[in-house]
Design a protein around this nucleic acid. Structure first.
Lengths: 240, 240
DNA sequence: TCGAATTGCGATCACCGTTCGCAATCAAGA
DNA sequence: TCTTGATTGCGAACGGTGATCGCAATTCGA
């Protein structure tokens, strides 16, 4: 009935519910995992923008259209990538109290985003719902088990913690890049602000940027940002 | 020496430092502001993806290439849009205490992001540094003036508050869309998760989602999320 | 062995951001 | 007043993108 539409007949629209290979037909020359890995390498080295269908296909020696046998769309490829890196979490639960456990997960998240600089923006933008991501979510909720809060409230807390982590890392990465070797762009970029500050507009901004940044360790800053939030959210140091 | 490269001779690479019109030559038929407004309308109605150079140009009755006389790139157009909506803040400072003032700004931000659903992802992803955005930043710092913290620490707090706001709104918008009239997509989207939950993986996730969402008002939830963070960050109710 | 389903993929479509070159326009200087 | 030179508007084009189509080749179950 249908022409060569792209995907096999078993396509329940959801990547994770779709079997990778059907019992009939020639055996695929590639795999979802291999494709995700190739895409990941490209993203790590050249940024997310370099991850195009054609580029990924070429990097595994396949034709562009062939990728659509494994992946329904470019977005789905990105989903695969996100879940792949979510697999880097170490989720073994030691006997720590909730706050320490969550803090550990947050730090792991920060490390992962440092390894894969393209991740932070994505996490802030779209939810990742693959098996590895769900495993992470479950682990975070497990850490919150002894805390007396409603289920939705706990979900909210985990979501916020992840968001804060992503936002923090994004700031880190942005400032790292702007102090890089690309003098021109970043210099010009801030020129307007400098002018405006000297012109006397934004007095409070000027004052805030004048204060020396005696904050020291970025690690410490991150820890206190997360701790701040958890404290406000009512996560105690010892389990209540 | 140069062909028709695009922009006029006065192009200090920064939109905000570049004069809109030069004293010589024919008077422009459009304006930066008009273009931003047109782009904004398109984004509000059809989403950010619909804001292409060609589309915006057509909507104001101009040729595609003409837009580059006003804007150096698509990214710059987006910058214009972001700063335009940043102008919707009401920044008059009444005599409130820091916490109340910040909370008001956060609520205004949330309202703005509701009016312009494309905004939240952008704010989380790239900083906006136009005059209106800087005015907002300055107002937030003004609210923090009576608080005894270093300048950078205050900047950090404002950045985090904005990030939390954007993340919260993003969650709101995502759940609104998924419970919309588009039954198929959202149903299929969650199907995998439902299956996995019933299969017994992710027990804590299952438990958390089973608890009824007695949280009530989203407004209230938002207030407490922000308040939580501010409390943890050491912003008192009354000025210290 | 045969049929049905699947794979790989070249060609193609409809876009996208961006650049080029040129005619038309306008303000200032001669 | 006329000329000059920078600036505007823009059709055409370039290289790239995601996605679809149709077909030959492959493979497994019946």
């Amino acid at each position: 009935m249908k022409g060569g539409a792209g995907l096999p007949a078993h396509d329940p629209t959801d990547v994770w519910r779709r079997p990778e290979r059907s019992p009939v037909g020639p055996k695929p020359e590639h795999s979802r995992n291999g494709i995700a890995t190739a895409a990941l390498r490209i993203a790590d080295q050249e940024g997310l923008a370099a991850v195009s269908i054609r580029r990924v296909a070429a990097s595994i020696g396949a034709g562009a259209a062939s990728l659509y046998r494994y992946v329904k769309s470019h977005d789905e490829l990105v989903e695969l990538m996100m879940d792949a890196v979510a697999g880097e979490y170490q989720l073994e639960a030691d006997g720590e109290h909730p706050r320490g456990r969550l803090l550990d997960l947050a730090h792991q998240g920060r490390d992962i985003m440092h390894r894969h600089p393209w991740l932070a923006p994505l996490l802030l933008t779209r939810p990742s719902m693959g098996p590895n991501s769900l495993r992470f979510l479950d682990a975070a909720l497990a850490a919150l088990a002894p805390v007396d809060l409603s289920g939705p409230a706990k979900l909210q807390i985990v979501a916020m913690m992840s968001a804060i982590t992503s936002a923090f890392v994004q700031n880190e990465l942005a400032s790292l890049t702007s102090s890089g070797p690309d003098e021109n762009a970043s210099a010009n970029r801030g020129q307007y602000i400098i002018d405006a500050l000297q012109a006397g507009e934004y007095p409070h901004l000027a004052a805030a940027m004048a204060g020396h940044s005696a904050t020291g360790d970025a690690d410490e800053q991150f820890t206190s940002a997360i701790t701040n939030y958890l404290t406000g959210a009512g996560i105690p140091i010892q389990l209540s």
